[in-house]
Amino acid sequence: MTEGRLTLEGVTKLFPVRKRVFTLKVRNFVHAVDNVSMGVERGEMFGLVGESGCGKTTTGKLIVKLLEPTRGKITVDGVDVTRIRRGKPLRAFRRKVQMIFQDPYESLNPRFTVYDTVAEPLGLQGLRSLAEREATVAEILSAVGLTPPETFMFRFPHELSGGQRQRVAIARAMVIRPQFVVADEPTSMLDVSIRAGVMDLLVALRRELGVSYLYVTHDLAVARYMCDRMAVMYLGKIVEQGPVEEVLRNPVHPYTRALISAVPVPDPTVRRDPPDIRGDVAAPIDPPPQCRFLSRCPKSGTVCERNNHPDLEEVLPGHLVACYRARD
């Protein structure tokens, strides 16, 4: 593998959960991220899609060092993330690696005005003088479509609509011009036209400064427009990975296929069939060793029941799939 900007090697994150059986405490583990390996190049946009609760946010938090992996190695620009020390080195890392948080209703401090929130990274990193900060904040606010910026700067989150809050969260992450950004559903509440504006901003930064992104989204159409490559996650495992157009046009894994067939069609005359998938989401608490998708898979056979979770294998150059029946 080329030495890219970000690499994950066998990264696993377990969360302990306690269940009480009478007074005996039994320790179980949520396998939020399970033996994940991938790489993101400089200037690349890498899409991560998957079921709610499959571990996308957890992966992002591991990368920005909000969580420590249980096993495995994460490097950003060749630096081992788990080994970064507190103080100066950590601050320098924070300067370079940012995250846009998923839920803008919870990730903005209700006592901070928009200005306070967006200027916070500048202040903490000691960038720009106080006087310059105002102009910098105004600039980024208009870039995310909060125009005119003076009318938004001193509002509190509760005075903003959902999409406006989301743009404040984007502005906060982008204001210090990071090198790598984990974008966790950054545009889920934005309409197409404003979303296009925000996407333009992200793409422009990528072109000018070589910023790389891990773009987490539920929206496959957005992934298609934004990303070069993408990975599909299911219960902590990557089940398919490859160039976006390739994955969307020739999905191989049964889960990816279900996902694509569930995308709503913007045409009221079309009646879509329900996606080919059984049952409901299983919680990833100490999952059985077989394929994670087994209980819901329409294609499963004895080979799937008898073996452990399949490894990722190349079906075409660059297109990896973890499924025993990939070639059927």
């Binding site: 197409v192 036209s193 298609r224 069609v265």
Partner: peptide, 24 residues
């Protein structure tokens, strides 16, 4: 609004953006 919608099907058209700024 209708023409700007990204889709996973068909040709990848450039995303149409409304010109100008959101209203104040």
């Amino acid at each position: 609004l209708m023409s700007a919608f990204p889709s996973i099907q068909g040709e990848k058209r450039p995303l149409a953006q409304l010109p100008g700024e959101p209203p104040n």
